[in-house]
Design a protein around this nucleic acid. Structure first.
Lengths: 253, 253
DNA sequence: CCCCGGTCTTCCACTGAGTGGAAGTTTAGT
DNA sequence: ACTAAACTTCCACTCAGTGGAAGACCGGGG
């Protein structure tokens, strides 16, 4: 090779995955050189790999020539274990119908919440979360609901890190946060007010199976209508409960 | 190499993709040797690739040790162009609320329909389609709605092939099928009765933008309640229309 | 007009990552 | 205990992948 295999030798597969990994919810479309930068691979290598991925429709081009995840990957992604979503969706559905608000389902992944399903109507509040998206745990309702039911050691290692502060209302002080989590455990649900986005607030309940929170259901409403959240807590808890019930039954079988 | 590079030399990337491509909606979980068989790659190669993919959580193991698409790929898939889904979802939502039936959205991909979104309640009929799933066009409502608005040459090449016959009610005779398509064009929607699955029937309407069917909206109900479909056609057409309207507006911008 | 900063594409000589047949190991079924 | 199938490991060979560099392309501003 001219430049030749200088690198100690990463496997090709890991390079392919590095290219794909360059995409995330904050960067859904990238130029060739963006990918090279973000993956740390030489441009010529990225160029070749992208070409091959494009051929298979794992990546596709936007109208302005940038790259984005292709239909083929979406299709593949749909095959991922969907037990939780499948069984929860009808209940989210029902919750949406009774409340008319943004409804979503999230699980914990690492130190973040991962949104796995969402039901929303037309006049929904502009909402940050997106199916497949991630957010930190402490400023979100679902995040708090999940965090409150994690073991002690997990919570303290979460709090030990520097916590992001997306709005002035975000609670980042460890002492106050753990008192809040205790309250969430006690009352069975979490409330947030403009802690993630100015203009919206949320209520969330954990889906508890055998004492563990396997997921959380959240409602997001405009902060003008924050007082209405109280009214919505009951159906929210009911939905979380139903999902937990179905989940437990599905796992017994 | 012991056996060594006998093959003329496919790129590693293509092998990775061949492994992923072994998964489809009919085969969401596969054993190592299933993958080898389906991808045509030697077992030892598959073994290594799968190991690397697993490490990255592109694949994961089921409880019984078989492989399935991992969370990471699902997440990635969520980044795929979702304009259509995003804009259609609220209307599907609304259609579900007014009808209470299985609602889904499909597009044409090649000679098949690809289901891209679905809203369903609890007491839904067991339904074959699944988000990300594919079905042939002629036995499904959405398929007929889409096919009816394809250009002449496409329809004839579709009809020229040997058509599957999943139930005794499936219409496969080219003459009769093209007469049906003409009727669909004339009345603006398609009806099917147990053509794909015994026990369920459907109504579907194309989402027409500039004379082209960019997608189709479908309703599936139990065949016992087939007569009720008539009543549901009106909201169905309305939903398809709204989606078409939003779509056209989004594309103008 | 030309030059500059950026992005994308092509080239090519070298070499180690990938290869796959075969042998060994574990698992399941009879 | 025997058989068959699925899985894992091994290893010598070699070609697919490599990446630096040079070239093409595209605006935009002097």
């Amino acid at each position: 090779m001219a430049g030749g295999a200088r690198e100690p030798g990463r496997s090709v597969t890991s390079k392919v995955l590095a290219v794909l990994g360059a995409f995330d919810s904050a960067h859904p479309q990238l130029s060739l050189s963006d990918i090279a930068r973000r993956s740390g691979l030489p441009l010529s290598t990225v160029h070749r790999l992208v070409g091959q991925l494009e051929e298979w429709q794992a990546l596709s081009r936007t109208s302005d020539g940038r790259l984005r995840v292709g239909m083929r990957l979406w299709e593949l992604g749909q095959l991922a274990p969907a037990r939780l979503q499948d069984l929860a969706h009808p209940w989210l559905q029902e919750l949406f119908v009774t409340t008319g608000e943004n409804v979503h389902l999230a699980v914990r992944d690492g130190m973040e919440v991962l949104y796995v399903d969402k039901v929303h109507g037309r006049r929904a509040v502009p909402i940050v979360s997106r199916t497949g998206g991630r957010l930190p745990m402490h400023p979100t309702g679902v995040g708090k609901a999940l965090l409150a039911h994690e073991p002690e050691w997990f919570v303290s290692s979460y709090l030990a890190r520097r916590l992001e502060r997306p709005t002035p209302h975000t609670v980042t002080e460890p002492g106050r946060l753990s008192r809040e989590l205790a309250a969430v455990r006690a009352q069975g649900y979490a409330l947030t007010f403009e802690e993630m986005t100015l203009g919206s607030c949320s209520a969330a309940a954990p889906v508890l199976v055998g004492g563990r929170a396997v997921a959380a259901v959240g409602l997001v409403v405009s902060s003008r209508r924050a007082r209405e959240l109280k009214r919505l807590v009951e159906p929210l808890l009911a939905a979380a409960d139903r999902i937990a019930h179905d989940y437990a039954r599905a796992h017994a079988a």
